[in-house]
Amino acid sequence: MDNSPSPNHIHKHEKATLRAKVRTEVKKLSQAERQSLSLQLCSLLEQQEIWKQAQSILFYAPLPDEPDIWKLVEDSIATGKTVLLPRFHPEQNQYVACHIKNIPRDLSTGQYGVREPNEFCSTISLNHLDLILVPGVAFDFAGHRLGRGKGFYDQLLEVLHGTTCGVAFDQQILDKVPVEPHDIRLSCILTPTRWQSATPPRPVLK
């Protein structure tokens, strides 16, 4: 009888080890450093042509250990871009993209402690987004992403069209993220110091 660990078990252990390692590195950043690096990251994104042309953008509500892109959310609403945030849909056990126009009115804290659009916010098809900003625990510059292990963004990435951009501190970039056959590569990776194209975006369906 073969008692050796299965490849899947080894893969999960490898991912868990990498998550712990990256989180340790990110925790070394002070709050002031995170704020400064987040502003640097936002500024670099604003210089990219895809940002200038994008009219519909799916953001994320940043957690304390993630780059804070909230300034871009506020600026995009003010300049008339279509701003969307994910909202967890319990019946479907997945996230949907919801349009927000007024932050105090349209947002509340969701079941996972993350700011989410309220139920009255309209949903927009995941096929019609120009740019999707994707958080994660770790990335590599080939466009691979290591998530938090719940798989919600993996579900989104399977059906999203448009440019998918991984957003990270430089401390979250690895030489190579372990991947599985079903993993979806991102179009590009953004850090405070670098914008790296990875794979062509899936065309937006108008």
Rank of each mutant, 00 (worst) to 15 (best):
Y95G: 09
P104G: 12
Q111R: 14
H99Q: 11
L37Y: 07
A32D: 14
W70F: 14
V134L: 09
L44S: 03
L126F: 14
S38R: 04
N127G: 04
E49V: 12
Y60P: 03
L84R: 10
L84D: 08
S76H: 14
R115Y: 12
T79K: 11
I57L: 02
Q111A: 14
A97D: 05
S56D: 03
P67V: 01
L39W: 11
L85G: 06
I57E: 00
I69N: 10
L131A: 11
K101G: 09
H89M: 07
T123L: 07
L58G: 00
E74M: 12
V26R: 05
R105K: 15
K81F: 00
K21L: 13
H128C: 02
G80N: 10
L45Q: 06
I132R: 01
A54L: 12
Y60V: 10
E74R: 14
I57Y: 08
V26C: 06
H89F: 05
N102T: 03
F120R: 01
K52E: 09
V26E: 00
C121D: 10
E25G: 03
T24G: 06
I100N: 04
L37T: 03
I69A: 08
Q47S: 06
H89C: 04
L129N: 02
H99R: 13
S122Q: 10
G110M: 03
D75M: 08
S125Q: 01
L39H: 14
K101A: 15
L72Y: 06
S43H: 15
I132H: 04
Y60G: 04
Q94W: 11
I124N: 01
Q48M: 10
E116L: 00
N93I: 11
Y60N: 09
L126H: 10
S108M: 13
R23T: 06
H99V: 13
R34L: 00
R87V: 01
L29T: 02
I57A: 03
I100R: 02
G110Y: 08
E25C: 10
K27H: 15
Q40E: 13
A78C: 07
I50P: 09
A54Q: 04
N93Y: 01
R87D: 04
V134R: 05
S108W: 14
G113D: 05
L84Y: 05
K101Y: 13
S125H: 00
A54E: 09
V134W: 08
V26Y: 05
K52W: 12
H128Y: 00
I57F: 11
V73S: 11
R23P: 08
G80L: 05
I69T: 11
K101C: 13
A61Y: 01
Q35I: 13
Q35N: 15
R23L: 11
T79Y: 00
V96I: 15
E46V: 12
Q111P: 13
L63D: 00
T24W: 07
Q35E: 15
S30K: 00
V83D: 05
V114I: 13
V134M: 10
I57H: 02
Q92E: 12
R105G: 11
D68P: 03
V114Q: 07
N118W: 13
A61D: 05
Q55H: 07
L44C: 00
C98P: 09
D75Q: 14
S38I: 07
F120T: 09
